[in-house]
Design a protein around this nucleic acid. Structure first.
Length: 875
RNA sequence: AGGCGCGUAGCUCAGGGGUAGAGCGCUUCCUUGACACGGAAGAGGUCGGCGGUUCGAGACCGCCCGUGCCUACCA
């Protein structure tokens, strides 16, 4: 064992140990067939991004689980990889091309896709290095990318099979269209945001000249595409209008007035204009009534030829122009402020334009049903359980999934359209001729699949499916999925559907849902707000372990993480504490050669106490990890190591070490045992520092050592209670000294009075500890101890402690202290007495509780008497 | 409009029918030979409000207030 520096320096060790683990193959799953398998697939980060706190949290939690399971003997696989993130990546590369003065169109499809691959090679891998920096113990030999060959094959197989079963179909429907990304989006990819808009009321004159209808709309530009006005069939105000025709203002086109019960009579004027080509609701109405669908906008959000004079105008400019025209004609009756939810593209925040177009869809109902059932009957558990309701809610109301995207980067849809017969050929191999008519004049569909289509297959496509590989057999279903709630629908639900459909079994046994990371004020971190805490910067400043430990310790279920730098600093300090405690132990164990086996026969009271506490900690931490309570688990280790081991035991140990000989040897053995177990307990949370220390002590890797288990032989329940007494005395003396402002350097005698023989004996046996930790000189104790003159007094559960002060006592101060305590005590006694005098309590409360209250009352009265006596002594 | 979560010490959060907890911050003292990224001792809380259940509620139930999020075809 070599000398360690005074302060832990993360930079010096992190890279070294990561490389060491990787090169020794520790990240690969074990091959022992008698051991159970444990597997996790990473939520693949986008290749566009660099590591943010969300990734850091997600990676940390997975790594904790995985390292824990690996240390617990499982053949553990953590499969890493990245997602091609169609729209996001295309946008990024396009922007790059634009900045180079070029464009996507200039490159053409083939050239552009090559460019994206190039980009992925250069920049898309940074995230992988960052995951490594975080300490992620992934099996890198299994790394996958959603666009690589194997995964593309899986995508193709799934598409073909779903198509063959008519679960994938193509059709003309209204979809969400992003005029900036120029692609269709699924419902999930639309973010609704409440916006203060206007509700305009427009006059539609009846063609028979008998009057007019006032229609309310938020999007006046869509009047160009109106094909009807609808009223509620029960609406008496308008019953005479049904069947008549009206003229669209400005446009001048004639459209029918129809009756449909979707119209809300209360809203606006109760008359609704119908634009089937540009509104999902109107689309349905249009279908019911056989109305034509007039598209008035082109894909870039500008008005098209059907918009007449407004053709070529941006949709919002058109709105303005139309409004001023309407207004000048006197056909704009009214405009009110109106708060409503407007859909935005989740990638570029552009306002979505509902649009009728030919797209590919997955019929999801039949897939969703078994996926719902799997959660209902517990084959999959979502943790925290509250999320299961959210899952059911969404799955029960699921609608068909639009999977085609009008972009270039992604899995191109394996469908070939025949120019001769118009039919579609879908196949596993690229066809050379139309299956229906044999014509060779066929062309592949231009569209690519939604990125989430390929990620839905992730848990099995990464393991080699559709081949029936060894990995697939061993590691599917995966054990647990760790992810944020924001992609519960996007990803988790879809993996459930696809996994059950194609593997016949759920993709994971458990889903561990964690929080989002926010800034200290609870704001979502974003570059535009400038409140981003960069994990890489943090790791550089405080070390990876401090960041990981902080994220874990703040990861309470159902609550977002409000991250502030002070938290990380505090945990950096904890790492340093661990470092220095280890340093201390090594300094003392160094002189001992050979083994230091722990001999239960030679243990002192503090030895037994700390070993018991250690066992308790092991049991608790293991239980908490099993429930994914990373916050409680990390907190438990923290307080054990710092506040029990370092604050108390190490201080006792210093004394025992000083005795030398066998006592020293035995103490070193205890110190080492506790340190050893602590390092192993802590390793999943703080992999680097624990490895560094463990290597110094043991010369082997903590990563492949076993996770600590409770050792029944080292459980000393009695020692725990006895230590409580000893520590109580120490704490009382310290407190008295502090109250009197007596520095540790001033050695004081202690007089202790107790009527309890066993306690007196116990303290006698452990006097040295009390003396050392309370900086005491002589300690005299006995049953009939008299209070020395001019002494401070303190009362504790076992008796009284006197501190002779030789004229330095401040009588007034002492009196005040005692009076305050007396007041507190009276309140408490009053509380208990009111309980004990309550007959209902005595009868109905459990006997043990009543007994406990009685005992406590007795004890309080004893203490009160003593305080009163001392007060009277003070005058 | 529905659904979910949260409201406990100055801040961030645990806890969960029977004596109010932690970390950070704050105050006082301590440069003791692992550590000042440290040690010791303290101050600080009507557990959002009102009702109810109970012998007993911060905890369970109802309503309300505040706050955050999700879902939705509010024209």
């Amino acid at each position: 064992m070599n000398e360690l520096s005074k302060v832990y320096n993360p930079e010096e060790v992190e890279e070294k140990w990561y490389k060491f683990w990787d090169e020794n193959g520790y990240f690969k799953p074990g091959q022992q067939s008698r051991h159970p398998n444990f597997s996790v697939v990473i939520p693949p980060p986008n290749i566009t991004g660099s590591l943010h706190m969300g990734h850091a949290l997600n990676t940390t939690l997975q790594d904790i689980i995985v390292r824990w399971k690996r240390m617990s003997g499982y053949n553990t696989l953590w499969l890493p990889g990245t997602d091609h993130a169609g729209i996001a990546t295309q946008n990024v590369v396009e922007r790059q091309l634009v900045s180079e003065g070029s464009s996507r169109k200039e490159y053409g499809r083939k050239g552009f896709v090559e460019k994206v691959w190039e980009w992925r090679e250069h920049y898309g891998r940074t995230i992988i290095y960052q995951l490594k920096r975080l300490g992620g113990s992934c099996d890198w030999s299994m790394e996958r990318f959603t666009m690589d060959e194997g995964m593309s094959k899986a995508v193709r197989e799934v598409f073909v099979r779903l198509y063959e079963e008519a679960l994938i179909y193509q059709g003309n429907y209204i979809i969400n269209w992003c005029p900036r990304c120029m692609t269709a989006l699924s419902d999930l990819e639309v973010e609704h945001e409440n916006i203060q808009g206007k509700l305009y009321q427009l006059t539609y004159k009846l063609t028979d000249g008998s009057g007019s209808l006032i229609v309310a709309t938020t999007r006046p530009e869509t009047i160009l595409g109106d094909t009807a006005v609808a009223v509620h069939p029960d609406d008496k105000r308008y019953s005479s209008f049904i069947g008549k025709s009206v003229i669209i203002p400005v446009v001048g086109r004639e459209i029918p007035v129809i009756a449909d019960s979707v119209v809300d009579m209360e809203f606006g004027t109760g008359a609704l204009k119908i634009t089937p080509a540009h509104d999902p609701n109107d689309f349905e109405v249009g279908n019911r009534h056989g109305l034509p669908k007039i598209k008035v906008m082109s894909d870039d959000g500008r008005m098209n030829e059907a918009a007449g004079v407004y053709s070529g105008m941006d949709r919002f400019e058109c709105r303005k122009a139309l409004l001023s025209e309407l207004s000048s004609r006197g056909e704009l009756v009214k405009e009110d402020n109106h708060l409503h939810a407007v859909g935005h593209c989740y990638r570029c925040k552009t306002i979505i334009e509902p649009n009728v177009s030919k797209q590919w869809f997955v019929r999801v109902k039949p897939l969703a049903e078994p996926a719902i059932k799997a959660v209902e009957d517990g084959r999959v558990t979502i943790i925290p359980k509250g999320w299961e309701n959210t899952y059911f809610e969404w799955m029960n109301n699921i609608k068909d999934w639009c999977i085609s995207r009008q972009i270039w980067w992604g899995h191109q849809i394996p469908a070939w359209h025949c120019k001769a017969c118009g039919e579609v050929t879908v196949d596993r191999e690229d066809p050379s001729a139309c299956k229906h008519c044999g014509s060779s004049d066929i062309k592949q569909d231009e569209d690519v699949l939604d990125t989430w289509f390929s990620s839905a297959l992730w848990p099995f496509s990464t393991l080699g499916w559709p081949e029936n590989t060894e990995e697939l057999k061993r590691f599917y279903p995966t054990s647990v999925l760790v992810t944020g709630f924001d992609i519960l629908f996007f990803w988790v639900a879809r993996m459930m559907m696809m996994g059950i459909k194609f593997m016949g079994d759920v993709p994971f046994r458990e889903v561990c849902i964690h929080a989002l990371v926010r800034d200290a004020e609870g704001q979502k971190m974003s570059k535009s707000k400038g409140n981003v805490i960069d994990p890489l910067v943090i790791m550089g400043k405080y070390g990876t372990d401090a960041l990981r430990f902080t994220l874990a310790s703040m990861s309470s279920p159902g609550r977002d993480i409000k991250l502030a730098e002070e938290r990380i600093e505090g945990n950096r300090n904890f790492a340093n504490k661990l470092w220095n405690a280890s340093r201390f132990i090594m300094m003392n164990s160094e002189v001992l050669e050979g083994t230091t086996a722990l001999n239960p026969g030679t243990l002192t009271l503090p030895d037994k106490w700390i070993l018991s506490r250690m066992n308790k900690t092991i049991a608790e931490v293991t239980g908490m990890l099993g429930e994914y309570r990373f916050d409680l688990a990390s907190g438990t280790i923290y307080s054990f190591f710092w506040h029990e081991f370092c604050d108390w035991y190490v201080e006792f140990a210093k004394l025992q070490l000083g005795e030398g000989g066998q006592r020293k040897e035995s103490t070193v053995a205890v110190l080492l045992r506790v340190l050893d177990n602590s390092l192993r307990l802590l390793h999943p949370f703080m992999p680097f520092i624990t490895e560094e220390i463990y290597q110094h002590i043991k010369g082997s890797s903590v990563m492949i050592s076993g996770y600590p288990v409770v050792e029944e032989v080292l459980r000393y329940n009695e020692a725990g209670k006895q230590m409580d007494y000893v520590m109580d005395v120490i704490k009382t003396v310290r407190s008295m000294r502090s109250e009197m402002n007596i520095p540790p350097s001033k050695v004081m005698d202690i007089h202790l009075k107790s009527s309890d023989d066993t306690l007196i004996k116990l303290l006698e046996e452990n006097l040295i500890y009390v003396k050392r930790l309370s900086w005491a000189g002589n300690i005299v104790q006995g049953k009939d101890m008299k209070r020395p003159e001019k002494s401070a007094i303190s009362v504790f559960s076992g008796g009284e402690i006197y501190l002779p002060l030789e004229g330095v006592i401040d009588l007034e101060k002492e009196k005040k202290t005692l009076e305050k305590r007396l007041g507190d005590m009276n309140t408490e006694i009053e509380n208990i007495n009111s309980k004990l005098s309550n007959n209902a309590f005595l009868v109905k409360a459990p006997a043990a509780v009543v007994q406990k209250e009685k005992e406590r009352c007795q004890e309080l009265i004893e203490q009160k008497k003593r305080i009163e006596a001392n007060l009277s002594w003070l005058g």
